[in-house]
Design a protein around this nucleic acid. Sequence first.
DNA 1: CTGAAAGCGCTAACAG
DNA 2: CTGTTAGCGCTTTCAG
Lengths: 351, 351
Amino acid sequence: MKVTLREIAKEAGVNISTASRALTGIYGVHKATREKVLGAAKRLNYRPNLMARSLVTGKSHTIGLLISDIRNPYFAEIARGAEDAAFAASFDIILCNSDLDPDKQFRYVRSLLEKNVAGILMNSVATLTPEQRAELANSGVPVVLFNPPMGKHSFSTVVADNYQGGRLAGEYLIGLGHCRLAHLTGRRNHSNLVERCRGFLDAVDAAGGLANAVVIHGDHSYRGGYELGRKLFEQHPEVTAIFAANDVLAFGLVQAAAEMGKSIPHDISLVGFDNLEVSGLIHPPLTTIHQPKYEIGQAAVESLLRQARAVGPRVPEQRVFGVRLEERASCRRIANVSQERPEIKAEFPRV
Amino acid sequence: MKVTLREIAKEAGVNISTASRALTGIYGVHKATREKVLGAAKRLNYRPNLMARSLVTGKSHTIGLLISDIRNPYFAEIARGAEDAAFAASFDIILCNSDLDPDKQFRYVRSLLEKNVAGILMNSVATLTPEQRAELANSGVPVVLFNPPMGKHSFSTVVADNYQGGRLAGEYLIGLGHCRLAHLTGRRNHSNLVERCRGFLDAVDAAGGLANAVVIHGDHSYRGGYELGRKLFEQHPEVTAIFAANDVLAFGLVQAAAEMGKSIPHDISLVGFDNLEVSGLIHPPLTTIHQPKYEIGQAAVESLLRQARAVGPRVPEQRVFGVRLEERASCRRIANVSQERPEIKAEFPRV
DNA sequence: CTGAAAGCGCTAACAG
DNA sequence: CTGTTAGCGCTTTCAG
């Protein structure tokens, strides 16, 4: 059933090493010989065994992609970008869904390392213990993160400008005349979200006493958005504008708002983050911070391959992609009745 | 940097084969010896080389997942189900996006075969040439399709009851009083879609002269739905009800309808297929045929593994999952003005 | 340009 | 229960 190189060599009447050279296209084999080998290979329907090749060369031509959940369109976009870049370089992608579960995540890391992957693309390294992180760092394979760990580290990162995105969202909402803001976000160890929060809060601070904001932490998922929404509407009825840490969370929030009779954008203005394809399709079309997800995935494997191919000590790369506010219909300008407030500046920065 | 089994054996003061047995947990090694080996392994931070192991055992513990595009939430769900089942069995998944491009698809198949995967999960085999199909069938690895090829074949398939879904959609729309129906669908070689169409048309036929339907083929994507929608509204203004072959196509249609001033459900009733998570979030919430995507992915790898483990000749499995109509707000009952028509039967089948 | 030979790191008989 | 010995299928020096 499976034909080996040795058989090809025999069939072609040459030595196995010659057959190898002919097939792998290495310089140093006579034209006629090569054709004989190629012919034999075709005739016998030869298919090289990549495991054997990898064993000797030490390169697997495989990349690990370890994310929370591929069902989140955000990750699906990243995965596609990564896969396309990998395909272009003849690398395969092993897909791993961790749900950010510490055990699962580390089990995957080990397994990928044992499979000798060329490198690992990871959502985040925050749930790993310091020892595990060290083990990963010392494993010798390049790691690219979509979520930079706080503090110093030796991993590469490819991210959107989260701080700027948060800031944009805050400034936009305040520019629309909102004073009572809320930010609904995920866990505190999620650095991308932390940055978004920081940017948002800086925007609020920059408005002086004119605006203030409450931030509530929960799960940055559809379900989490729903729960955070219900909580918010109950505990903070005064809020008129919300910045959701990501779009799926915003979707959940939309659901909660509908159930509690809050109209978006009439009662509540809402800004999301990610700009998923469906974000323009929901009701109302969601105003959100756009980040280039596909490009991030792509850039991540490019960075990974660059490092994998590099000789000498590995030098981590940091790359940041710009963001922009995609204005749709989930926000409205409000008259400012509750407080004194200067004119809303028309030239308010939007990009 | 990398420590091998041989070194562990030396460190533990035993033979390499004993070390191997101790580590792989095979029966036949003294407790004390095993602990010595385990200790040495831990101390030296040993990580087995799975490529080497695979080379000798012939099993890679890897499954290929070859789909159109992971960005389609339908496939993301399937992928997640597949990945979870694979993880439970300690298998990894290699993700491949083909865009249904014949070349890409076959390149992937070859590459997966060369990587010695335990089996391949494929969206469809329709774009392969008969020779390629034969090659795949003879490769010796089990293949599970999410899209059964027409005619006889030796592949396993795991699918939803597409015919029944189409039928349900048709009956529902007709039961609501619609007479001028349309079905917007994808390419003719996509068997799932063909079945949906057949079911739908059978429902229309079953209504006798009371209803008729036009079917338009295009691309079964968001963009395709948009284009099909514009075409339909122009060429067939009489249509009051549409069955879209899948939800993302329906989303595109919603977009087209909005642009052309058609209100859903007021002017147009719309039924989709898939029941994506976002389908309930768009405006209006989409009535659609639900199919268990996650379970399909899961069942596919289970079937795959069953076959991979089986001894003797491979026997393909066929599995069909039930569907149901998820009623939301994209359809409305209409008064039947244009034709004579009996009372709508209240007991009309909905499941 | 081609052949011979030595492994990559591991498992699997087969003895002992 | 443990050691010896062959390889899995391929690449890669090193001679010739």
